[in-house]
């Protein structure tokens, strides 16, 4: 029996969520009284997983540089077998959600995504996860010899417990990809909705795309990602990948600031997992206030520029 954690990387360095999944896996292993091993692909700094209590890591150094789900899954399967891994932990990024079902089918493993806490029971293994787009939690039992847990973004947090981590760099051979990357477009230097600590989101209340500097300026001060409600992307004011909610991207960030968004049930379902929600809306009856932690009843065109300036001053002092 052992725990295996998949630490994602990009541009040869571990991604931010590697800390969270490792923290979870280390805690799980200690509850089970077994070893925890990490696996990474082309990560030059796999040893930093030691910060989160991981003592051994396997780094595959000749994998395709861009994430390749089928190839990565095949590589992981080999190591799962040689380590006799019974529990696999990974994250909830787009790549993790791509990989996990393929891995589960290849291993005949049970898989539950969007898990929000350590198991509530270890035998049989039972986990709590979000369901019905954050309108409820389900407690689900995993009944296979090997079980895969997908930890929700920001659901567990980083828990530091520094140890030395020994990294074994390995090369694998004879694996094939079944997809070829034609191109990749990625905004650089800007926080993404999946990764950011703060997301600033705008709705139809902002009247038109020409007013989005309000959202962008506030986001810039906070190092935040920008997002929008569904009608805003449907009307083409903003691109599709900013659409958040039940039918868009899920948001589970530390701080979500909603500007001129009414708080329709489909919008809330997708953003409710965020820890703190701030709503700026000129209608005191807007349903979003019922789901918010802090609210400002006021005209976004007046409130947001002032808030942005004040935050700039606040950040500058620190």
């Amino acid at each position: 029996m052992s725990v295996f954690v998949i630490a994602e990387s990009e541009n040869k360095t571990l991604k931010r969520n590697a800390g969270e999944v490792s923290s979870y896996a280390v805690a799980l292993a200690s509850k089970l009284g077994v070893n925890c091993t990490a696996i990474s692909f082309n990560a030059d700094n796999a040893d930093v997983l030691g910060q989160f209590g991981v003592t051994q890591a396997i780094n595959i150094k000749n994998a395709p540089l861009h994430f390749d789900a089928n190839y990565y899954a095949s590589a992981i399967v080999k190591h799962v077998q040689s380590l006799n891994a019974t529990h696999i932990v990974l994250g909830s990024s787009a790549d993790a959600k791509f990989l996990a079902p393929i891995l589960a089918a290849k291993l005949g493993a049970a898989y539950v995504p969007n898990v929000v806490a350590l198991p509530t029971n270890y035998d049989p293994l039972t986990v709590k996860h979000t369901a019905f787009t954050n309108k409820a939690f389900a407690f689900t039992q995993l009944n296979s010899e090997c079980n895969i847990i997908g930890v929700g973004n920001n659901a567990y947090g980083n828990i530091e417990s520094p140890v030395a981590c020994s990294v074994e760099n390995v090369e694998i051979s004879n694996l094939v990809s079944n997809l070829e990357q034609v191109s990749i477009e990625k905004i650089s230097g800007k926080a993404t909705i999946a990764d950011a600590d703060v997301v600033v989101s705008g709705g139809r209340g902002l009247k038109g795309p020409e007013n989005w500097h309000l959202v962008e300026n506030l986001a810039e001060v906070l190092g935040a990602a920008t997002a929008c409600s569904k009608p805003v992307s449907d009307m083409g004011w903003r691109s599709h990948d900013e659409h958040v909610g039940q039918t868009g991207k899920p948001v589970s960030t530390n701080l979500y600031i909603a500007i001129g968004i009414s708080g329709a049930i489909q919008h809330l379902a997708g953003v409710n997992a965020s820890k703190i929600k701030v709503v700026i809306n000129n209608d005191p009856e807007a349903p979003f206030f019922k789901a918010a932690d802090y609210g400002v009843v006021g005209d976004a065109f007046e409130v947001v520029p002032v808030l942005t300036e004040k935050l700039k001053a606040f950040k500058a002092q620190r």
Binding site: F137, T140, D293, Y294, G295, V296, E302, K310
Partner: peptide
Amino acid sequence: TAATNDITFEKPLPKQDVKLVPAEDLDQLI
């Protein structure tokens, strides 16, 4: 055969009331 089965469900705890901050006092929000 299924690999998982749901045992129980739970609804999120009801939210505490929102704290409203006057639009003239954004320092308070910060």
